[in-house]
Design a protein around this nucleic acid. Structure first.
Length: 417
RNA sequence: GCGGCCAUAGCUCAGCCGGUAGAGCGCUGGAUUGUGGUUCCAGAUGUCACGGGUUCGAACCCCGUUGGCCGCCCCA
């Protein structure tokens, strides 16, 4: 038996309706902020991610699906899409277009991690990138946009966290001070922190072990070490978020795993997601373009929503409803031929119509009932002879004979929203 | 990649001390030759995840594999 491979899954109805819902909401919000869709390839040269995301990141060092093409070029299934969008931006010289380039994407990403709830090897992201401006107001607008998507999806109880991780001018000095302090206090911390103190000191700030929290409080904060430009930028982002009425929490310990982040980083968490509590992550990546070989700078900021995780919270509160308007139940071949024409007329009005594949009326009505059809059109030899059809309200059971020529008029305007 | 728990019908699950498998829901047919829902009757649910081992005998005990869930790491 051939099964879907580990960490991948089929999205079946009725769940697929929830996926459509969040995608439709997202596209509508993107339209209002004048973002346009970009579709980039699902695989790229491995070097793009190695340079763009960072050789030392977990994603690149151990999670990528990498394989050799027939000519030995190393290819990789995209583990995220910011690098791919930036590659397209540079390749097609979108910097030559006036104004900020605003792009969004919806599609699958691939990371070879141990699957668990909310974490898959093929997962979907809804993301947006604003490239071509360093303005902190762009940061605030991007955050406003993602918050709006979640709100309009009906998600409640999410939590917006923001931080600044500085820039190449101020971050190295901070990491130096952090290492100094850690050398002193790390021996008293949990095993993970002792390891992180060596491998990735920023990660210590994100430790969740309760016993370590008092120690973490004593560690230096990136926010006390920002250079003047980063400080001003971060203050302006916060002011603009407040102007927009967006609730947020500054979390100096918010550290993101991708090397390309500069200055603003942000994350939205949701309590219903379990260990994988992050529903969305994003940040500014002013150095990314140069990292992947661009001669022109292309400062940008973006986010990506974990669509699988978003759908998980949406599905509980918003059960999908079947939207079948009419089920046509013909008895016999003559009726079946007529049924095809009836369905055609009703569909032309925008109604959702299904024609029974069964000629037994009892069976057809059973299927109609189980499909959630609102009305049934019943016809057999008697109706053909009389030039009528039976029009049955499935909820009330009421049924009347309708002249064939009046069917279209009767059903007008009764389609689902 | 590491640790723990789990795997029986399409679904949710029972299955005692090892003696070759059950319920509910769903599905199929009938009661009803042209009328769904409610009801009644009948029927089929299956390589007990897969592969080995122990045993007279394994769904049950042991080992391995695969998959799922939970935690870690990390992320969306």
């Amino acid at each position: 038996m051939i099964r879907a491979i580990k960490g991948t899954r089929d999205i079946l109805p009725p769940s697929s309706a929830a996926w459509n819902f969040v995608e439709e909401v997202s596209r509508d919000v993107f339209r209002r902020y004048h973002y346009q869709e970009i579709r980039t390839p699902i695989f790229e040269e491995t070097a793009l991610f190695a340079r763009g995301v960072g050789e030392e990141t977990d994603i690149v060092s151990k999670e990528m699906y990498t394989f050799a093409d027939r000519d030995e070029t190393s290819l990789t299934l995209r583990p995220e899409n910011t690098a791919g969008v930036m590659r397209a931006y540079i390749e097609h010289r979108l910097d030559q277009i006036p104004g900020v380039t605003k792009l969004y994407y919806i599609g699958p990403m691939f990371r070879r991690e141990r699957p668990q709830k909310g974490r898959y090897r093929q997962f979907f992201q809804i993301g947006a990138e604003a490239i071509g401006s360093e303005s902190p107001y762009v940061d605030a607008e991007v955050i406003e946009m993602v918050v709006e998507i979640l709100e309009r999806c009906g998600v409640a109880g999410f939590h917006l966290l923001i931080n600044s991780v500085g820039c190449p001018k101020c971050r190295p000095a901070f990491i130096g001070k952090l290492r100094e302090k850690l050398a002193e206090v790390a021996p008293g911390m949990c095993a993970d922190c002792r390891r992180r103190a060596e491998t990735n000191p920023l990660r210590v700030l994100d430790c969740k072990v309760p016993e370590d929290q008092p120690v973490i409080e004593t560690l230096p904060s990136i926010l006390d070490h920002l250079c003047a430009e980063c400080r001003t930028h971060f203050d302006t982002v916060q002011g603009s978020l407040s102007d927009r009425g967006i609730a947020y929490e500054v979390k100096p310990r918010l550290v993101r795993g991708l090397d390309y982040y500069r200055r603003t980083t942000f994350e939205i968490t949701h309590g219903a997601l379990g260990a994988q509590s992050a529903m969305m992550g994003g940040g500014r990546y002013d150095g990314l373009a140069e990292a992947i070989g661009s001669k022109v700078p292309a400062p940008g900021i973006g986010f990506s929503i974990g669509e699988d995780r978003l759908v998980m919270t949406v599905e509980e509160s918003r059960p999908a409803v079947p939207a079948l308007d009419v089920f046509v139940a013909p008895m016999g071949d003559a009726a079946a031929r007529e049924a095809a024409l009836i369905a055609r007329e009703l569909r032309a009005q925008g109604l959702s119509v299904e024609v029974s594949a069964d000629r037994k009326l009892k069976r057809s009505l059973e299927v109609a009932h189980k499909s959630g059809a609102r009305f049934a059109v019943i016809l057999g030899d008697d109706e053909i002879a009389a030039g009528t059809v039976q029009w049955k309200n499935m909820a009330s059971g009421e049924q009347i004979a309708v002249p064939r020529g009046e069917l279209a008029a009767r059903s007008k305007g009764m389609e689902h929203g």
